[in-house]
Amino acid sequence: MEYYADCNIARATGTLSGALAADHVMRGETIYTGKLIIERTSGTLDVLPISAPGRLLDGICGTGAVSVRAQVRSYNLREGDANRLAITLFARYIEDAPENACPENDVSLVGTLCKKAVFRTTPFMREIADILLAVNRAFGRSDYIPCIAWGREAHMAAELCPGTRVRLCGRLQSREYVKRFPDGTEQGRTAYEVSCRTLEIM
Protein backbone atom coordinates (compact mmCIF):
# COMPACT_ATOMS: atom_id res chain seq x y z
CA MET A 1 0.00 0.00 0.00
CA GLU A 2 1.33 3.42 -0.96
CA TYR A 3 1.29 6.18 1.63
CA TYR A 4 0.90 9.41 -0.31
CA ALA A 5 2.56 11.50 2.41
CA ASP A 6 5.76 9.46 1.93
CA CYS A 7 5.85 10.27 -1.80
CA ASN A 8 6.20 14.01 -1.32
CA ILE A 9 8.30 15.28 1.58
CA ALA A 10 9.84 18.74 1.87
CA ARG A 11 11.81 20.14 4.79
CA ALA A 12 12.72 23.80 4.77
CA THR A 13 14.21 26.32 7.18
CA GLY A 14 14.42 29.93 6.11
CA THR A 15 13.09 33.44 6.69
CA LEU A 16 9.59 34.65 5.89
CA SER A 17 9.62 37.78 3.72
CA GLY A 18 6.65 39.05 5.74
CA ALA A 19 3.57 37.85 7.56
CA LEU A 20 1.54 35.24 5.67
CA ALA A 21 -1.69 36.71 4.30
CA ALA A 22 -5.12 35.11 3.92
CA ASP A 23 -5.46 34.07 0.27
CA HIS A 24 -8.31 31.60 -0.27
CA VAL A 25 -10.53 29.03 1.42
CA MET A 26 -10.03 25.30 0.82
CA ARG A 27 -12.48 22.77 2.26
CA GLY A 28 -13.75 25.36 4.70
CA GLU A 29 -10.29 26.37 5.95
CA THR A 30 -8.50 29.63 5.22
CA ILE A 31 -5.15 29.19 3.47
CA TYR A 32 -2.43 31.78 4.08
CA THR A 33 0.34 32.45 1.57
CA GLY A 34 3.67 34.24 1.42
CA LYS A 35 7.33 33.79 0.50
CA LEU A 36 10.06 31.82 2.26
CA ILE A 37 13.67 32.90 1.65
CA ILE A 38 16.35 30.19 1.89
CA GLU A 39 20.06 30.81 1.33
CA ARG A 40 22.06 28.24 -0.62
CA THR A 41 25.63 27.35 0.33
CA SER A 42 26.71 29.49 -2.66
CA GLY A 43 25.00 32.52 -1.12
CA THR A 44 22.24 32.59 -3.76
CA LEU A 45 18.76 33.13 -2.32
CA ASP A 46 15.80 30.96 -3.25
CA VAL A 47 12.54 32.87 -2.73
CA LEU A 48 9.83 30.21 -2.58
CA PRO A 49 6.03 30.44 -2.41
CA ILE A 50 4.63 28.95 0.79
CA SER A 51 1.03 28.12 1.73
CA ALA A 52 -0.26 27.13 5.16
CA PRO A 53 -3.67 26.35 6.68
CA GLY A 54 -4.62 28.91 9.30
CA ARG A 55 -4.77 26.29 12.08
CA LEU A 56 -0.99 25.77 11.76
CA LEU A 57 -0.18 29.42 12.39
CA ASP A 58 -1.30 29.70 16.02
CA GLY A 59 1.71 30.82 18.01
CA ILE A 60 3.79 31.65 14.93
CA CYS A 61 5.17 35.19 15.13
CA GLY A 62 4.58 35.65 11.40
CA THR A 63 7.98 37.06 10.48
CA GLY A 64 11.56 35.90 10.90
CA ALA A 65 12.96 32.38 10.72
CA VAL A 66 10.69 29.33 10.51
CA SER A 67 11.08 25.59 10.02
CA VAL A 68 8.53 23.90 7.79
CA ARG A 69 7.55 20.33 7.01
CA ALA A 70 5.64 20.46 3.77
CA GLN A 71 4.77 18.99 0.40
CA VAL A 72 5.58 20.46 -3.01
CA ARG A 73 2.17 21.15 -4.54
CA SER A 74 1.12 22.31 -8.01
CA TYR A 75 -2.00 24.06 -9.25
CA ASN A 76 -3.21 25.83 -12.38
CA LEU A 77 -2.92 29.61 -12.26
CA ARG A 78 -5.15 31.46 -14.72
CA GLU A 79 -3.37 34.21 -16.68
CA GLY A 80 -5.54 35.84 -19.31
CA ASP A 81 -6.73 33.11 -21.66
CA ALA A 82 -4.16 30.54 -20.56
CA ASN A 83 -3.32 28.42 -17.54
CA ARG A 84 0.17 28.33 -16.04
CA LEU A 85 1.52 25.65 -13.70
CA ALA A 86 2.22 27.20 -10.29
CA ILE A 87 4.24 25.63 -7.47
CA THR A 88 4.06 26.12 -3.71
CA LEU A 89 5.40 24.60 -0.51
CA PHE A 90 2.21 23.47 1.23
CA ALA A 91 2.95 23.37 4.96
CA ARG A 92 1.88 20.42 7.06
CA TYR A 93 3.75 21.69 10.13
CA ILE A 94 5.42 25.04 10.81
CA GLU A 95 7.23 26.49 13.81
CA ASP A 96 9.40 29.47 14.66
CA ALA A 97 13.13 28.77 14.32
CA PRO A 98 16.12 30.47 15.97
CA GLU A 99 17.44 33.41 13.97
CA ASN A 100 20.79 31.61 13.61
CA ALA A 101 19.22 28.34 12.43
CA CYS A 102 21.03 26.72 9.50
CA PRO A 103 19.15 27.00 6.18
CA GLU A 104 17.47 23.76 5.09
CA ASN A 105 15.95 22.89 1.72
CA ASP A 106 15.43 19.17 1.15
CA VAL A 107 12.83 17.55 -1.10
CA SER A 108 12.12 13.85 -1.64
CA LEU A 109 9.63 12.82 -4.35
CA VAL A 110 8.37 9.47 -5.61
CA GLY A 111 6.47 9.79 -8.86
CA THR A 112 6.05 8.95 -12.52
CA LEU A 113 7.66 10.63 -15.52
CA CYS A 114 4.90 12.43 -17.43
CA LYS A 115 6.84 12.70 -20.68
CA LYS A 116 10.28 12.18 -22.15
CA ALA A 117 12.90 14.27 -20.38
CA VAL A 118 14.36 17.11 -22.47
CA PHE A 119 18.16 16.81 -22.55
CA ARG A 120 20.17 19.91 -23.42
CA THR A 121 23.52 21.63 -22.90
CA THR A 122 23.73 25.12 -21.42
CA PRO A 123 25.90 27.91 -22.89
CA PHE A 124 28.35 27.07 -20.09
CA MET A 125 28.49 23.45 -21.39
CA ARG A 126 26.61 21.95 -18.44
CA GLU A 127 24.43 18.97 -19.38
CA ILE A 128 20.93 19.11 -17.93
CA ALA A 129 17.57 17.39 -18.38
CA ASP A 130 14.16 18.93 -17.77
CA ILE A 131 11.76 16.48 -16.10
CA LEU A 132 8.04 16.69 -15.31
CA LEU A 133 7.14 14.36 -12.45
CA ALA A 134 3.59 13.35 -11.48
CA VAL A 135 3.34 12.69 -7.73
CA ASN A 136 0.14 11.16 -6.36
CA ARG A 137 -1.65 12.57 -3.35
CA ALA A 138 -4.88 11.81 -1.53
CA PHE A 139 -8.38 12.13 -3.02
CA GLY A 140 -7.23 10.88 -6.43
CA ARG A 141 -5.23 14.00 -7.22
CA SER A 142 -1.67 14.45 -8.46
CA ASP A 143 0.92 17.20 -8.36
CA TYR A 144 2.91 17.90 -11.52
CA ILE A 145 6.34 19.05 -10.44
CA PRO A 146 9.04 20.44 -12.77
CA CYS A 147 12.49 19.06 -11.96
CA ILE A 148 15.94 19.55 -13.41
CA ALA A 149 18.75 16.97 -13.38
CA TRP A 150 22.45 17.59 -13.95
CA GLY A 151 25.37 15.60 -15.35
CA ARG A 152 25.09 11.86 -14.77
CA GLU A 153 21.50 12.13 -13.52
CA ALA A 154 20.62 14.16 -16.64
CA HIS A 155 21.94 11.39 -18.90
CA MET A 156 20.03 8.81 -16.85
CA ALA A 157 16.78 10.79 -17.04
CA ALA A 158 17.14 11.22 -20.81
CA GLU A 159 17.11 7.43 -21.25
CA LEU A 160 13.93 6.83 -19.25
CA CYS A 161 10.53 6.30 -20.86
CA PRO A 162 7.35 8.14 -19.87
CA GLY A 163 5.60 6.21 -17.12
CA THR A 164 8.85 5.20 -15.39
CA ARG A 165 8.54 5.43 -11.62
CA VAL A 166 11.44 7.15 -9.87
CA ARG A 167 12.59 8.56 -6.56
CA LEU A 168 14.12 12.02 -6.90
CA CYS A 169 15.84 13.94 -4.10
CA GLY A 170 17.06 17.52 -4.23
CA ARG A 171 15.99 21.05 -3.34
CA LEU A 172 13.22 23.38 -4.48
CA GLN A 173 14.77 26.39 -6.19
CA SER A 174 13.66 29.66 -7.76
CA ARG A 175 15.04 30.91 -11.08
CA GLU A 176 14.47 34.23 -12.84
CA TYR A 177 13.89 34.30 -16.59
CA VAL A 178 12.40 36.52 -19.32
CA LYS A 179 9.24 35.40 -21.16
CA ARG A 180 9.12 36.65 -24.76
CA PHE A 181 5.72 36.96 -26.44
CA PRO A 182 4.89 36.74 -30.19
CA ASP A 183 4.25 40.50 -30.33
CA GLY A 184 7.83 41.16 -29.22
CA THR A 185 7.05 42.19 -25.66
CA GLU A 186 8.89 40.69 -22.71
CA GLN A 187 7.97 39.92 -19.11
CA GLY A 188 10.19 38.94 -16.19
CA ARG A 189 9.05 35.75 -14.47
CA THR A 190 10.18 33.29 -11.82
CA ALA A 191 10.31 29.53 -12.36
CA TYR A 192 10.21 27.04 -9.50
CA GLU A 193 11.68 23.57 -9.93
CA VAL A 194 13.28 20.79 -7.93
CA SER A 195 17.02 20.66 -8.62
CA CYS A 196 17.87 16.95 -8.56
CA ARG A 197 20.68 15.66 -6.36
CA THR A 198 19.95 11.94 -6.77
CA LEU A 199 17.70 9.98 -9.14
CA GLU A 200 16.72 6.34 -8.62
CA ILE A 201 14.46 4.01 -10.62
CA MET A 202 11.87 2.39 -8.36
Rank of each mutant, 00 (worst) to 15 (best):
M1V: 13
E2N: 04
Y3Q: 10
Y3L: 08
N8P: 04
I9E: 06
A10V: 06
A10M: 13
T13I: 11
G14E: 03
T15F: 14
L16P: 04
L16T: 13
L16Y: 13
S17T: 14
L20E: 00
L20N: 03
L20D: 01
A21W: 01
H24Y: 15
H24S: 05
V25R: 10
M26C: 02
G28W: 07
E29M: 05
T30F: 02
I31T: 05
T33Y: 07
K35Q: 11
K35D: 03
I37G: 03
E39Y: 03
T41F: 07
S42T: 08
G43V: 00
V47P: 00
V47L: 04
L48R: 06
P49Y: 13
I50E: 02
S51C: 11
A52S: 14
G54V: 01
R55W: 08
L57C: 04
D58Y: 10
D58N: 11
D58V: 01
G59N: 11
G59H: 12
C61W: 06
T63D: 04
A65Y: 04
V66L: 09
S67Y: 12
V68E: 01
V68A: 08
V72M: 08
R73S: 09
N76L: 03
L77Q: 15
L77D: 14
R78E: 12
G80A: 09
G80R: 07
A82G: 12
R84E: 13
R84H: 13
L85V: 15
A86R: 07
T88C: 12
R92F: 02
Y93L: 04
E95R: 15
E95C: 11
E95Y: 10
P98D: 15
P98A: 15
A101F: 07
P103Y: 12
S108A: 15
S108T: 13
S108M: 14
L109A: 13
V110Y: 02
V110E: 04
G111A: 05
L113K: 14
C114S: 10
A117W: 12
A117K: 13
V118P: 01
V118Q: 10
T122D: 02
T122K: 08
P123F: 09
F124T: 14
F124H: 10
F124G: 02
M125F: 02
R126N: 06
A129C: 04
I131W: 12
L132V: 15
L133R: 12
A134D: 00
A134I: 02
N136F: 03
A138V: 02
A138E: 03
A138P: 00
G140N: 00
G140T: 00
S142L: 01
I145N: 11
I145E: 09
C147G: 06
C147D: 09
W150T: 01
W150Y: 15
W150M: 06
W150E: 02
G151W: 03
E153M: 03
E153Q: 07
A154K: 03
H155S: 08
M156D: 03
M156T: 14
M156W: 03
A157S: 08
E159K: 15
L160N: 11
C161D: 10
P162M: 05
R165D: 06
L168W: 07
C169I: 06
G170M: 08
L172A: 06
Q173E: 15
S174R: 10
E176A: 12
Y177K: 06
V178P: 04
V178L: 09
R180F: 01
R180Q: 11
F181L: 14
P182A: 11
G184P: 03
T185G: 11
E186L: 01
V194C: 08
L199R: 06
I201D: 05
I201P: 09
I201S: 05
